[in-house]
Write a protein that binds this DNA or RNA. Sequence first.
DNA 1: GCTAACAAATCTAAAAAACTGATATATAAT
DNA 2: ATTATATATCAGTTTTTTAGATTTGTTAGC
Lengths: 299, 299
Amino acid sequence: MTNVTLEQWQTLTAIVDNDGYAGAAEAMNKSQSSMSYAIQKLESSLNIRVFTIEGRRAVLTPIGRIMYQRAENLLQTARQMEKQAAQYAEGWEPVIKVAMDTLFPEWLMLEVIEHFTTEHPLTRIELLETVLSGTDEALLRKEADLVIGGRIPPGFLGNPLLTITFQAVAAPSHPLHHLGRDINYEDLQLHRQLVVKDSGSRNMDAGWLGAQQRLTLSHIHTSISAATKGLGYAWYPKLKIHNELTLGTLKALPLEMGSERHVQLNLIYADGDYVGPAARRFGELLTDAIAKAECLQVP
Amino acid sequence: MTNVTLEQWQTLTAIVDNDGYAGAAEAMNKSQSSMSYAIQKLESSLNIRVFTIEGRRAVLTPIGRIMYQRAENLLQTARQMEKQAAQYAEGWEPVIKVAMDTLFPEWLMLEVIEHFTTEHPLTRIELLETVLSGTDEALLRKEADLVIGGRIPPGFLGNPLLTITFQAVAAPSHPLHHLGRDINYEDLQLHRQLVVKDSGSRNMDAGWLGAQQRLTLSHIHTSISAATKGLGYAWYPKLKIHNELTLGTLKALPLEMGSERHVQLNLIYADGDYVGPAARRFGELLTDAIAKAECLQVP
DNA sequence: GCTAACAAATCTAAAAAACTGATATATAAT
DNA sequence: ATTATATATCAGTTTTTTAGATTTGTTAGC
């Protein structure tokens, strides 16, 4: 079904780009007659003319011009494939899988992905958002090469990335805000806690204070929006509820103790023995980006 | 720079699709040993392995899987190019240029384009929006294969497509609406008329009543929005101001005579002698679409 | 554990293709 | 008219691709 070879398409583009058979021949390190041969082959197998001789120059026909454009595109993708293979041959992974705990600020991740893909356009990134034990599983099942998570499963090595500060909050209208005193453990027990669903199968719990009622939501953003509507109280990363706190749709709860909690997020490579250069570079960019982002600095 | 031939990529996909060298050989009408040869060639020139022998089966390596995906894509575009060439060889234009007077309802044009491109995905459409003499010029300068316009320049043949009804309108707040009587020619003279700029070089005039002041705008939509803001009166195609009339942001002017005008739009082929099958088909679809659209029927 | 069946790799000779250099043809410039 | 330039054609050579036989290694049945 494909009768025209890449080399024939390339001959077409070379003739156009080096205006003429002679130039193309030189550019391709071949003889002029083989240029002629290639075009004749192309023309006869497609049953069209791509060049007409005007005077003593070869000029593209209308369909030739279109084929030229498409040929350029075809060749470019073919070249890119070979380039990617070459990168792989040098040890660069063609794809890296990154698992990220939803606690991690996504804007920062997007920034790093942006940076990485401009630096290495041929390495694809697959991003997996995980929660708690889901992050562990991604590591253990080798579903990710690079993981950002709070727990470091036994046998893995992790580097601290950044510390996430959690704040206990509820909507201003929530009863907990109208006790007229600091809130204690028993008060919390009486109200509904919003919990983010564990993406793994082991079902760990983010909120360990046993609240009578719970509302488990699958994503932190859903959960936050539930909290603003007064559906319950919850601990959220301060960074993720900055807007809600300034707008006043969420308000910090005055707990007797433990109003703030801290979780350390770590950068963990799935395979400690051999980390591919792409995964390693991605990790570097992540660390750099965090170092630069002053809003993440612990004062 | 391209060392791997299309046929080698195709061998790769054939082996995957027909699970095995033997199947691929049969599918490609070649011998098993030439499959083996092609893959070895590919692997050595890319310096990667795309298959590993697991047991007695050839299985894709990770990079092989990625290359397979990309190869499928590459081959598909190569095949499409040849298909397009074949269509051209049979007389189908690779691109048709359509010039459309802005009076023509654009939703209808988009509908027809949608229909045509699903029917003939390999023929590209270039749409040129023209006004008055611009439409003529598109024909005369052979800038379009197919033209929808009001005037049929001498020497061309046109088929009536549809009749556009113009309505004289102004914003409800406009002084012309507060005369307390029917509007006559002299009344109009005293006010600013909104005119759509001729896209051609001959500069014909859409509004022929010589109004003292004129505001010439380049596009009918700009003009309509100017009219709703009370900047002047104008004649617009009823179809184009349906929304404005129902919302009341524009109101029909009670003229003594000539409150409505009619313009016939015609379908004109640039080259009467030989119309390509794509252009002809596009014309058919246009005519059909107009016949079907009941809101365009003259009662 | 042995054997038959199977799948891919290797080898060699043959066939197909692509390539070159020389030459022919046609056009533009002088 | 003559020369320089650009593509086409031809004939012989080189390179690449192919088929068929054989080999190597694996699985499944007995």
